[in-house]
């Protein structure tokens, strides 16, 4: 009952966020200095005045801004995100055709990062060993190195030099290894740092001492009792990262020449393809709203204390 009501409130709040995001994006794009006609016709050519007028009428750009805004909102409600200036395809179909590839990349990367970060904190937290030092250095390196550079380095060695994983040919999972590793490394750094910190704290709690006195092995203490405490920050960071990766894996997609939302985001921003930019803004806002709701539900699963206080 409580959950249902809370969920309903959340969904309404989410809709408000979406409306705000759409309006803000619309307002900002109005301030763009570019002339959409130039974009529609191609940024590499100049356009005759007659053709300019014809294109303006075609895309409704000759109408007042207020009217364009109303029209824009009405279309969104009907699920129509408009037509790309550049590709002449509907924005929905563009996003639809790219989404799969991005989802695969983002979910595999986040999953790999979580597994690596869990292992790293299980093995190294609360200990002062050389392994911990080595892992911390890797984390620091991965946090401070741009994904672009990690990608190029991985390519140089694993594709160009040793020819283990192709960048040109499409060989199923083998083509996925390097981009997933690139993104996972970038996420792993911060995730692992936070999770270990959290596990360090947990290992100092009295209940851990109790568990130890019951004769549990060190591994069982960590696996059954301490790991749970790292899940809350893990959920927070990984859902947020996952949302960010949807439109934010631009660089990785570009380096590896993969289809995906990042690539069309970059293309659309560079070319001022406004309908596509809008569509992506809305999609990302939608994904973040949804992920927040999902994260809240996951918190309850991960932490029984939240269930008690909510009841």
């Amino acid at each position: 009952m409580h959950i249902a009501r809370e969920l309903l409130i959340r969904i309404f709040a989410g809709a408000a966020v979406l409306w705000a995001a759409a309006s803000l994006a619309f307002a900002i794009l109005q301030l763009f200095p570019s002339d959409p006609v130039q974009v529609i016709y191609g940024a590499d050519s100049s356009v005759t005045p007659e053709l300019r007028a014809a294109i303006r009428a075609d895309f409704g750009l000759d109408r007042p801004v207020w009217e364009q805004y109303q029209h824009f909102l009405a279309r969104i409600v009907q699920g129509d995100l408009g037509t790309s200036y550049q590709q002449r395809r509907s924005v929905i179909s563009i996003i639809g055709s790219e989404l799969g590839s991005t989802l695969t990349l983002a979910s595999l990367s986040v999953l790999l990062a979580i597994v690596m970060a869990c292992l790293a904190s299980l093995v190294t937290s609360g200990r002062r060993t050389w392994l911990r030092k080595a892992l911390s250095s890797i984390e620091l390196l991965s946090v401070s190195t741009p994904a672009f550079w990690i990608g190029i380095l991985l390519l140089t060695f694993f594709s160009f030099k040793w020819q283990l994983f192709p960048v040109v040919a499409d060989e199923g999972w083998r083509s996925l290894v390097l981009p997933v590793a690139t993104l996972a490394l970038a996420v792993f750094g911060s995730l692992s740092q936070v999770m270990r910190e959290e596990m360090d704290l947990a290992l100092e709690q009295p209940f851990i001492l109790t568990a130890r006195t019951r004769g549990l092995s060190e591994w069982a203490v960590r696996w059954r009792h301490a790991l749970g405490h790292t899940l809350i920050p893990c959920i927070t960071i990984s859902t947020e990262t996952f949302g960010g990766l949807l439109a934010g894996s631009i660089i990785t997609e570009q380096v590896f020449g993969r289809p995906g939302l990042g690539r069309i985001t970059l293309e659309a921003i560079n070319n001022h393809d406004i309908p596509v930019v809008m569509g992506i803004v809305l999609l990302v806002a939608f994904v973040f709203v949804t992920l927040n709701i999902v994260a809240d539900l996951l918190y309850r699963l991960a932490d029984p204390r939240l269930r008690v206080s909510a009841a």
Partner: peptide, 19 residues
Amino acid sequence: LRFLKEDSVRVGAVESNQA
């Protein structure tokens, strides 16, 4: 025709005989 935007990756691809 394989589309790779990054200059260094295209060059790496022909150098490593992938293109």
